Measured scan of single mutants.
Amino acid sequence: IGSLMYASIFGNVSAIIQRLYSGTARYHTQMLRVREFIRFHQIPNPLRQRLEEYFQHAWSYTNGIDMNAVLKGFPECLQADICLHLNRSLLQHCKPFRGATKGCLRALAMKFKTTHAPPGDTLVHAGDLLTALYFISRGSIEILRGDVVVAILGKNDIFGEPLNLYARPGKSNGDVRALTYCDLHKIHRDDLLEVLDMYPEFSDHFWSSLEITFNLRDTNMIPGSPGSTELEGGFSRQRKRKLSFRRRTDKDTEQPGEVSALGPGRAGAGPSSRGRPGGPWGESPSSGPSSPESSEDEGPGRSSSPLRLVPFSSPRPPGEPPGGEPLMEDCEKSSDTCNPLSGAFSGVSNIFSFWGDSRGRQYQELPRCPAPTPSLLNIPLSSPGRRPRGDVESRLDALQRQLNRLETRLSADMATVLQLLQRQMTLVPPAYSAVTTPGPGPTSTSPLLPVSPLPTLTLDSLSQVSQFMACEELPPGAPELPQEGPTRRLSLPGQLGALTSQPLHRHGSDPG
Rank of each mutant, 00 (worst) to 15 (best):
262 L>S: 11
430 P>M: 13
348 V>H: 04
509 S>F: 06
213 T>K: 03
408 T>Q: 08
402 Q>G: 07
192 L>E: 01
220 N>V: 10
228 S>Y: 11
475 P>D: 06
429 P>Y: 06
316 R>V: 06
201 E>M: 04
290 S>T: 05
273 S>Q: 07
499 L>N: 15
256 P>L: 10
441 G>D: 11
335 S>F: 03
330 D>E: 14
413 D>R: 09
315 P>F: 11
468 F>D: 09
384 P>S: 11
501 S>C: 11
259 V>H: 13
430 P>A: 10
184 L>M: 08
455 P>K: 12
190 D>K: 04
235 F>K: 10
207 W>C: 07
445 T>H: 14
396 L>D: 04
395 R>Y: 05
427 L>I: 13
268 G>V: 11
353 S>E: 06
320 E>G: 08
143 I>Y: 01
333 K>Y: 09
372 P>H: 09
322 P>R: 10
462 L>H: 14
171 K>W: 09
311 P>T: 03
189 R>I: 14
479 P>V: 11
255 Q>C: 13
325 E>C: 07
176 V>D: 02
167 A>N: 04
148 V>D: 13
196 L>P: 03
395 R>D: 03
318 P>S: 11
312 F>G: 07
166 Y>L: 04
482 P>R: 08
466 S>M: 07
373 T>V: 10
176 V>Q: 02
499 L>E: 10
298 E>G: 11
152 I>L: 04
298 E>M: 04
470 A>P: 07
403 L>R: 03
415 A>G: 06
506 R>V: 10
326 P>K: 03
394 S>P: 11
411 S>K: 12
264 P>C: 10
468 F>S: 04
229 T>Q: 08
321 P>Q: 15
338 C>N: 13
303 S>F: 13
260 S>C: 10
451 V>M: 12
262 L>W: 13
264 P>E: 10
470 A>R: 11
365 E>I: 08
213 T>H: 03
402 Q>K: 03
366 L>N: 13
346 S>M: 08
423 R>S: 06
402 Q>Y: 09
510 D>R: 08
247 R>V: 11
482 P>T: 13
383 S>P: 01
171 K>T: 10
160 G>I: 01
461 S>Y: 06
372 P>R: 09
168 R>E: 10
165 L>I: 11
297 D>F: 12
386 R>P: 13
358 S>C: 13
441 G>S: 08
349 S>H: 08
137 S>A: 08
434 A>Q: 15
311 P>V: 03
264 P>A: 09
141 I>Q: 01
210 L>D: 01
315 P>N: 05
330 D>I: 11
411 S>A: 09
150 V>T: 04
208 S>D: 13
314 S>L: 09
147 D>N: 12
502 Q>F: 05
412 A>F: 04
263 G>T: 10
341 L>K: 05
474 L>G: 08
412 A>I: 08
427 L>M: 08
323 G>D: 07
222 I>S: 12
229 T>M: 07
179 L>F: 05
209 S>F: 05
142 E>H: 04
346 S>W: 08
205 H>D: 11
147 D>S: 07
483 Q>P: 08
435 V>G: 11
499 L>P: 11
450 P>C: 05
195 V>F: 03
472 E>P: 10
158 I>Q: 01
187 I>N: 01
421 L>S: 04
219 T>H: 12
292 P>E: 14
267 A>H: 09
350 N>L: 02
470 A>L: 08
236 S>Q: 10
340 P>L: 11
473 E>H: 12
393 E>Q: 03
286 S>E: 15
402 Q>H: 05
415 A>S: 11
230 E>Y: 07
284 S>G: 10
251 K>M: 10
262 L>E: 13
420 L>G: 08
357 D>G: 09
440 P>W: 09
228 S>P: 09
315 P>H: 04
492 L>E: 10
143 I>M: 02
468 F>Y: 13
205 H>L: 07
496 L>A: 08
447 P>V: 11
177 R>P: 02
395 R>N: 08
267 A>F: 09
465 V>I: 10
196 L>A: 03
184 L>C: 10
335 S>L: 07
503 P>I: 11
427 L>N: 08
190 D>M: 05
333 K>H: 10
192 L>V: 03
376 L>R: 09
401 R>K: 11
314 S>H: 01
175 D>F: 04
347 G>T: 06
505 H>K: 10
192 L>D: 01
417 V>A: 07
134 Y>G: 02
392 V>G: 11
228 S>M: 10
344 A>M: 07
363 Y>I: 13
265 G>I: 10
351 I>D: 10
404 N>M: 12
365 E>L: 09
432 Y>S: 13
392 V>L: 04
143 I>W: 01
273 S>Y: 09
332 E>F: 07
270 G>T: 11
458 T>Y: 06
132 A>I: 03
419 Q>D: 06
161 E>H: 03
397 D>S: 08
232 E>S: 11
418 L>R: 08
151 A>I: 03
274 R>L: 10
197 D>K: 13
303 S>H: 12
224 G>S: 11
398 A>S: 08
370 P>M: 07
185 H>N: 09
205 H>Y: 09
223 P>W: 06
501 S>Y: 11
441 G>R: 10
192 L>H: 01
266 R>N: 12
364 Q>D: 04
460 D>K: 15
458 T>S: 05
400 Q>H: 01
377 L>K: 03
438 P>R: 11
346 S>H: 08
300 P>Q: 04
210 L>M: 11
180 T>P: 02
